[in-house]
């Protein structure tokens, strides 16, 4: 696919985000859109944002649960970029105009103290390179109407990233068993679902290792100080104006966020 077509697809997504009007799936326009091309569309929009003054602060990994992979008919995760403009403070508010069709997930976030360079990063490498983990809420969102996404659609759309919240207390990875960390997600005080670390590819650290290795082919390194959202521990829950979401994690504390009308 020529550069100008990649650029045109990036325009569609950027325009959808600017206007708040979802686009039709890119795969409806280009049935043959490959995963590789989709990542180039994603990178095009990220580079434009960085040029406009935003900054890359980390990465997110998506499609880490068997349920999500089945839903999209894929057998691997995907990833997107976290930007400075996506950060919401713990217990903060999100005006609905900042999002389009938001859903909320509870995750474990990693903050690195060393760079991680693929292509042979292991779980043990990730644990040794991690400064600390904290509980996180990810607000996923789609610039594609009605979330009608196939794998290349969500990849091109920055892996359906929206906003994110870090909360709780930072902990060293040696202080807990990441695979068994329990999580409860509440919406307005009601339990929506529960999860556990192993929901993300069996181990959240395995997701980070996958990411480091997947980034290698794009010449990208995970850098010290970066925040990595490692993947949802339970199903994403739709957010409505007025909703408050809280995720409580064993050992790690909680992260919370509210959605306001404007």
């Amino acid at each position: 696919m020529e550069d100008h077509r990649i650029s045109a697809l990036a325009d569609l997504l950027a325009e959808a985000e600017r206007t708040g009007q979802g686009t039709q799936p890119l795969t409806a326009l280009h049935e043959d859109l490959t995963i590789e091309q989709a990542y180039h569309v994603q990178l095009t929009n990220i580079e434009r944002r960085v040029k406009a003054g935003d900054r890359i602060v980390g990465k997110k990994i998506g499609l880490t649960s068997l349920a999500m992979q089945k839903l999209l008919g894929v057998d691997q995760p995907d990833y997107g970029h976290l930007l400075e403009s996506m950060v919401i403070e713990n217990r903060g508010e999100i005006p609905m105009r900042r999002v389009m069709q938001p859903k909320v997930e509870g995750e474990i976030a990693f903050v690195l103290k060393q760079d991680l360079i693929g292509p042979r990063v292991t779980v043990l490498d990730v644990l040794q390179a991690t400064d600390y983990v904290v509980p996180a809420l990810e607000i996923v969102d789609s610039r594609v109407s009605d979330w009608k996404i196939k794998l290349p659609d969500t990849i091109a759309d920055n892996a359906s990233s929206g906003l994110y919240v870090l909360g709780g207390r930072p902990m060293k990875v040696e202080e807990l068993d990441l695979t068994q960390v329990g999580m409860v997600l509440y919406r307005n005080g009601q339990i929506e679902n529960t999860g556990v670390g192993a929901a993300a590819l069996g181990n959240p650290a395995a997701c980070v290792a996958w990411l480091a290795n997947a980034l290698f082919r794009f010449g990208i390194t995970l850098k010290a100080g970066e925040v990595i959202l490692s993947g949802a521990l339970s199903a994403a829950v739709n957010a409505q104006p007025g909703d408050t979401f809280t995720a409580r994690f064993a050992h790690l504390g909680e992260a919370s966020v509210s959605f306001t009308l404007d």
């Binding site: 329990g182 999580m183 409860v184 529960t194 999860g195 556990v196 192993a198």
Partner: peptide, 9 residues
């Protein structure tokens, strides 16, 4: 892995 959850379930 077949299923998972936390005590709050």
């Amino acid at each position: 892995l077949k299923d998972l959850g936390a005590g709050a379930a």
